[in-house]
Design a protein around this nucleic acid. Structure first.
Lengths: 110, 110
DNA sequence: GTTATTAATCGTAATATTGCAATATAACAA
DNA sequence: TTGTTATATTGCAATATTACGATTAATAAC
C-alpha cells in the first residue's frame, strides 16, 4: 500500500528507520558530508555544490531538518545550516551497538 | 520524477545511501534486530515474529539481501538467514567517521 | 505418485518519493 | 517603493515503495 505499518514496531525501531531513511538518498548524504567538510555553518551555497535544482535541494534540506539531522537558522536573506551532532551520534551509537553484538557472538553458520 | 539522479554523486555516497535506505523501514530494522537477538541463523520463523504477511516479509528480506545486509542459504524447505557482519560494519564505520569529524571541529555557530 | 510445508514471485492497489517549473515569501538595498 | 537576492511552497508528472491475495516452485513426508 506504500504505507508503513509503523504501529507494529517499537518507537526506537521507527526512530532509527526514520533517521536511516533520511540518509537513504545520495543527495542527502552529499549534503551531510558537505556540511561537515565546510567545518562551519553553510549559508546557502549548497545549491551550487550539487547539480540539482533549488526546489529539490530545499526539499531535501527540509527532510533532513524534520528528522533533526541538520539545524537551520535564518540569517538575513539566507539560512545558516549545520549538522546536529547529537542526531548523527544516535545513528553512530545504534550501528556501533549492532556491530558490538555481532563481534561478541561470532556466528559462523551461513 | 521519483528517480534518484545517482549519476551526480560518488559511488561511496550512493553506496551509503543504498544501505541506509535498506535500514530505512521499521520492519527491516526489526528483522535485523531479530536476526542478531537470536544469535544463530534463523530458519524461517521471522514471519511469526512480525505482524506482516509472508509475501511482505519475503520482499523485505530480498531488499536486505540485495544490499548485502543479510545472507540466506537454503536448508531443505526453509531458508537460513543471518546478518552479514561486514556490511553492518560498513555503516558503523561510516557514521563513526562522521561523528569523529564532528567532535574534532566543535562548530558552535547555530 | 499425493500431500503438506516453506518461501519466492506475480499482479495490483494505495501511497510515497523525487525532481522541477512556476510562484510565493522574506529580507535587504537603492 | 521598487528591485534584487535567497529560500520556501505549490502543483504536477514520473517513478518507487509498501502491502497483500493468489499463485508458483521446491523440497519433504507419506
Amino acid at each position: 500500500m506504500g504505507i508503513s505499518k509503523t504501529e507494529n514496531f517499537t518507537a526506537k525501531q521507527n526512530g532509527i528507520a526514520n533517521l536511516a531513511k533520511a540518509v537513504g538518498h545520495p543527495a542527502r548524504v552529499a549534503i551531510i558530508e558537505y556540511l561537515i567538510k565546510r567545518k562551519t555553518c553553510v549559508c546557502g551555497d549548497i545549491v551550487n555544490e550539487l547539480s540539482l535544482a533549488q526546489p529539490t535541494i530545499s526539499q531535501h534540506l527540509k527532510e533532513l531538518k524534520n528528522v533533526g539531522l541538520i539545524k537551520g537558522t535564518i540569517e538575513g536573506t539566507s539560512v545558516c545550516y549545520c549538522i546536529d551532532d547529537k542526531t548523527v551520534q544516535k545513528l553512530t551509537d545504534y550501528f556501533t551497538s549492532l556491530s558490538a553484538k555481532l563481534i561478541n557472538q561470532k556466528t559462523t553458520c551461513c
